[in-house]
């Protein structure tokens, strides 16, 4: 059943102090992840990646190459996991579906007039249904940031609830595009709206706007997930996307998830990285950790 907007039960207005958040994040960044925990962490990161291509120039050829990489990250090194999913435009879902037919890698599709979301609800719903019908396991929608900033919170809520309904069996990730929300107070409010409207995941960014998935923003969203879980016992997933291109930053994100939400969230059912170039950096780190040699990009395939 579609959820309806009820501001009184949902949002006791929660304020966020940015400087306090920065200090908390700095603490995560001083965690020292060494030896066994580093290797384990890096493998987790690989397994949490939504390998992404979202460009106007995407072609079936490009998507097929990326889908192969998703399943064969670095075949010379056995025992590595594959990524969690590939993330493509709705028009490419069919191609990806075929390329990943025998794979456990999931297919995520952006929708709802990605990335701006500036279209009618009817178009957004049919956009979503098309992607789901083509075989997308996951839908990454964008919220209407203009409406949000204009104070039309119930519009934003209702739209998410409608898209959730249109998703059918597909899991819904709600992109807040935090780089356009201006304050962490807004990030928190938008997170609460998305979660209460039925999001399975909340996601920071489209990757088209800077800043994207900063740790401050991700932390704020994780706290919203934590509060909702503490109140209802329902888990919601988190996907920082955009800007996480190094192993170090990815590990800091894992530290943050572990310390805020606990080990239960440390699987690709509940945590994802939206990234295009992270995987190879992680692979290089893994090989470096095992061999002790610093690596060159020449030895890692680009797809």
């Amino acid at each position: 059943m579609r959820k309806s907007f009820d501001p009184t039960t949902m949002l006791s207005h929660i304020t966020v102090d940015k400087v306090g958040v920065e200090e908390r994040v700095a603490r995560f960044q001083t965690r020292s992840i060494k030896s066994e925990s580093k290797l384990q962490g890096l493998k987790m990161v690989l397994n949490m990646i939504d390998l992404t291509t979202l460009e106007g120039k995407d072609t079936p050829g490009k998507v097929q190459q990326m889908c192969y990489k998703a399943q064969h990250l670095h075949d010379v090194h056995p025992g590595l996991p594959c990524v969690a999913a590939v993330c493509v435009y709705p028009s490419m879902v069919g191609t990806a579906k075929k390329a990943l037919s025998n794979s456990s890698v999931k297919i995520a599709s952006v929708s709802t007039a990605f990335p701006s979301g500036q279209s009618t609800r009817e178009i957004k719903i049919s956009d979503t249904k098309f992607a789901a019908d083509e075989g997308a396991d996951e839908i990454d929608m964008v919220i209407s940031r203009g409406k949000f900033l204009a104070g039309e919170h119930s519009f934003v809520f209702d739209e998410i609830a409608a898209i959730k309904e249109a998703c059918g069996k597909a899991r819904l990730k709600v992109i807040l595009e935090t780089g356009e929300l201006s304050t962490l107070d807004n990030v928190r409010l938008a997170s609460d709206i998305a979660i209460h409207a039925g999001a399975d995941f909340i996601k920071t960014s489209t990757g088209k706007i800077q800043p994207a998935a900063t740790m401050q923003v991700t932390y704020t969203m994780l706290m919203a997930i934590k509060d909702y879980f503490d109140k209802t016992g329902i888990m919601v997933g988190m996907k920082p996307a955009g800007g996480i291109s190094t192993s170090k930053l990815a590990l800091h994100n894992l530290v943050m998830v572990k310390e805020v939400l606990g080990n239960a969230w440390l699987s690709n059912d509940w945590f994802r990285f939206g990234a295009s170039s992270l995987a190879n950096d992680v692979l290089m780190q893994i090989i470096k950790t095992e061999t002790g040699l610093y690596q060159s990009t020449d030895y890692f395939s680009i797809d």
Partner: peptide, 13 residues
Amino acid sequence: HPIESIGGATSSY
């Protein structure tokens, strides 16, 4: 008291 530095796309967050 903390000073929040908030900007647009140029902000650090």
